[in-house]
Amino acid sequence: MPTTPITAGARSAEEQRHATVRAARDVADDLAADAIARDQAGLPPIDEKARLCEAGLLAALTPPGPGRGVDWSTGCAVIRAIAAADSSVGAVLARHYVHAWSGRFYSAHHQATALEEESQRKHWLWTGSVRAPAPDDDTSAPDLTLRPRDTGHLLSGRRPVDTAVTVADQIVLDAVCTMTGEILVVRIPRSARGVTVEPAHDRLGQRVAGAGEIVLDRVTVTPGQLLGRRPHDEESAAPFTALAEPALRLALCHVALGIVEGALTEARDLTRGGHARSLPGEDPDLLLTYGELASAAQTATAVVHRATAVMGRALDAGSHLDAEEPASVAALVATAETVTSKAALEITTRVLELADAPGLDRFWRNARALTAHHPVTRRLRSIGEHYLNGSHRAVAAAFH
Rank of each mutant, 00 (worst) to 15 (best):
G42E: 03
A317M: 04
V21T: 08
Y106V: 06
A263S: 12
R368Q: 13
D29F: 00
A83C: 01
G181F: 12
P64W: 03
H392F: 00
V339S: 02
R25D: 13
R158Y: 03
R362F: 06
Q298D: 15
G194N: 11
A294I: 05
L264H: 10
L144Y: 12
H254V: 00
A141H: 10
L315R: 14
I259W: 03
Q16Y: 02
I347R: 08
P63T: 06
Q16R: 15
A247C: 13
S391M: 07
P64K: 02
R187C: 07
D34Q: 11
E385P: 00
G384H: 11
E235N: 10
V215P: 03
A37R: 14
E182F: 11
A10R: 15
P189L: 01
A323I: 11
R147C: 01
D143T: 13
L279E: 15
R80M: 09
T113P: 00
G281V: 02
A302P: 00
P358T: 03
E15N: 03
V172M: 05
L216S: 06
R149D: 07
T348S: 15
E245A: 14
I79H: 04
W101A: 05
R187Q: 05
C177F: 07
H18Q: 15
A263E: 07
W101G: 08
T299I: 04
A267E: 05
R230P: 00
F105N: 06
F105P: 09
L279T: 15
A327V: 10
A175Y: 11
S102L: 12
L144S: 10
H99Y: 15
L257C: 08
H254K: 03
F399L: 12
D136K: 06
R350Q: 14
R25C: 03
E213D: 12
A317T: 07
T338E: 07
V260R: 01
G56K: 02
P5G: 09
I46C: 01
A263M: 10
F240R: 13
V70F: 10
V70P: 08
P160M: 02
A336I: 01
A200M: 06
S391I: 04
Q120D: 09
A256W: 03
H386P: 01
L388V: 11
K122L: 13
P44W: 08
T4L: 09
M1K: 02
R95W: 04
L332P: 02
T220I: 03
D361K: 11
A134C: 02
A247Y: 05
G318K: 06
K122M: 05
D30H: 12
E385A: 15
R149Q: 13
V339P: 01
D71Q: 12
A336M: 00
V195W: 10
Q120E: 14
G181L: 06
P199I: 08
G128N: 04
E353M: 12
T308R: 11
I36G: 00
V303D: 03
D137K: 04
A314V: 04
R306K: 09
A8F: 07
G291D: 07
A300N: 09
M311Q: 11
G224E: 13
A59R: 13
L345C: 12
E261H: 14
